[in-house]
């Protein structure tokens, strides 16, 4: 049979699964924990410094995020962040530096296709959905919180 029936396909998928190498769940968890935690420590150092300088907390927090975005962007530009990501997985993808990486990497990647339809159009290839779902979920949550409960 060229195209397997649903049952054949299910059986084959089961068979194949047995040959997959096991995911190193515990090791990956620790790696993500270490790297993700360390990135947050860098953020905390910046935050503490700004607060100590007398910057109001909310503003200091925004400035910290922006600085972390800059660092993520720079490390992506230098070709280092993808190496960190290969090691740490979500440990470097989940912090806001990873959000910056998801914006800078397609921007750089599609530079050769031009600065309008390449860089700018592709920039939010991965970050776009994050913004869309961030907006959707937070709007629903806020409406419920402010006007319903």
């Amino acid at each position: 049979m060229a195209k397997a029936t649903v049952r054949e396909a299910e059986a084959y998928n089961m068979l194949v699964k047995g040959f997959h190498p096991p995911r190193q769940v515990a090791r990956n968890f620790i790696k993500a924990y270490m790297v993700g935690g360390s990135i947050c420590v860098v953020g905390q150092i910046i935050l503490d410094y700004l607060v100590a300088k007398g910057v109001p907390f909310v503003q200091a927090s925004s400035m910290t995020s922006s600085t972390m975005v800059f660092l993520g962007a720079l490390l992506t530009g230098l070709g280092i962040y993808d190496e960190i990501g290969r090691f740490a997985g979500m440990g470097s993808a989940l912090p806001i530096t990873g959000f910056a990486n998801s914006i800078v990497s397609p921007a750089m990647e599609f530079k050769r296709e031009g600065f309008v339809l390449g860089v700018s159009a592709r920039m939010f290839q991965i970050a776009g959905p994050v913004l869309v779902y961030g907006a959707l979920s937070s709007i629903i949550v806020s409406i419920l919180k402010v006007f319903v409960f």
């Binding site: 997959h20 190498p21 990501g85 290969r86 997985g89 993808a93 990873g98 990486n101 990497s105 750089m108």
Partner: peptide, 13 residues
């Protein structure tokens, strides 16, 4: 897949 500088782990398969 992803842009080459995107930091993610490749699936073991």
């Amino acid at each position: 897949r992803y842009p080459t500088e995107f930091g993610y782990q490749r699936a073991p398969t």
